[in-house]
Design a protein around this nucleic acid. Structure first.
Lengths: 222, 222
DNA sequence: TAATTTTTTTAGGTTAAACTAAATTATATT
DNA sequence: AATATAATTTAGTTTAACCTAAAAAAATTA
């Protein structure tokens, strides 16, 4: 029934899924940039995926994933995040080391494998970066979070994730001990450079605008 | 330095390695049959691998892996067997279910991943089929075993592996409770059909010539 | 040894996925 | 609205890996 997808096709689907859910515009160029490829290649692949009814496409109008395409993409994201969880929790990788490996593992084809892995890991809800892991049915918990720069001064918040997943950023956070689960108090935002003053472990610290915009937190009472 | 190999190249190398170590002849046709491909494709790929110094090749004379090619193939076998061990020991797959998945996992590229996995699994020496797992340096324990049909009557032996890895054979063994580690006593060989009489768990049973030839054991005193 | 069969190689073609450069359409700016 | 800029598509190549059919070499058999 469902002709199995190539790794390239899966990567396109996943990129489109991410642009569709996160960002705004989902044009040919955006996809090309996301996949480190060229617009011409994207146009070509888009046509193939449209043929397979994984997305709808009209010339010059961009694409929209179909339900089927969306579900498939969710499945790939599920695998990616489960593998990331495995790599960190079981194999003791750091959170900044797992992306590239999970990028390969997500393409392993075996329903059984995913379900057994999920079971083995204890059906985790979040991956090491705080991103929700879709369950077998594609359901995942909403993460009602916002970035530090959107928190109003003098409120407490718990670190819950990152917007930027680059190893450089993750390593930087690790060094500053700004890791998932930690509680911080946002003190003030500096008008000069948009840096943010906060308290972590009873110590005052300042984080740059860039960090504040990419660090996700959940407000907590207090 | 080392241009990374494609999945196809890896599969060719592995096939050549297996034919080279197990079987006798390692001709173009044998490789083609092993990889479910055609002789013409093999000739082509062989040339490429020879260019990369992974094997030596002379027209019509067959191929011989170089040290470099041999080492690389061992690395792939290492990964395959470690993943099989993982699938059975951690994810609770049956020994007849893991081959195809390991066939995919063996191509994941990450030195770190293999070493962490090996460590996590406790540096196993044998995979679920009794095949030795090469260590980081490519060393692996010799398995001085022979098939049941080569055991002389009235001797005890411990089941240590299989020659044939097909799910059908493995399921059949499982059903008969002829699993790795079990001790059997070889009673007699029937001249008529080469079937073998043996005792397992104090019960007499007969196994076909085919089973006897593909079940590997180690002689034990008694 | 000559003839036949088998194995291997060559030649030429196909497909998937990429690319560059040129053409086309859409968007933004005066 | 006309023009300039940006985004997208088309056309035509390239590469890796496969294929079939035909040619060439090696092995086997009469």
């Amino acid at each position: 029934m469902m002709s199995t997808l190539s790794i390239s096709e899966e990567n396109y689907l996943k990129a489109i899924f991410h642009l569709y859910t996160h960002d705004a515009g989902i044009g040919t160029n955006a996809i090309a940039h996301h996949l480190n490829t060229k617009a011409a290649s994207v146009t070509e692949m888009i046509k193939k995926l449209a043929e397979k009814k994984l997305l709808t496409y009209e010339k010059y109008q961009g694409v929209v994933p179909t339900r089927k395409g969306f579900t498939l993409a969710l499945g790939i994201v599920r695998k990616h995040r489960l593998w990331e969880y495995f790599l960190v929790e079981k194999l003791k990788f750091k959170w900044d080391e797992v992306h590239d490996i999970a990028e390969q593992l997500e393409h392993i084809k075996s329903e059984r494998l995913v379900e057994q892995l999920d079971h083995y890991l204890g059906f985790p809800k979040l991956d090491p970066h705080g991103d929700p892991i879709p369950d077998k049915e594609g359901k995942m918990c909403a993460m009602n979070c916002c970035c530090v720069s959107d928190i109003k001064p003098n409120s407490n918040a718990k670190i819950s994730g990152v917007k930027n997943h680059s190893p450089a950023f993750l390593k930087h956070l690790e060094k500053m001990k700004l890791t998932i689960g930690k509680t911080v108090k946002v003190i003030d935002r500096n008008d000069f450079d948009q840096s943010v003053e906060l308290v972590l472990n009873h110590e005052t610290m300042y984080i740059s605008k860039e960090v504040a915009e990419n660090l996700l937190v959940k407000k907590i009472k207090g």
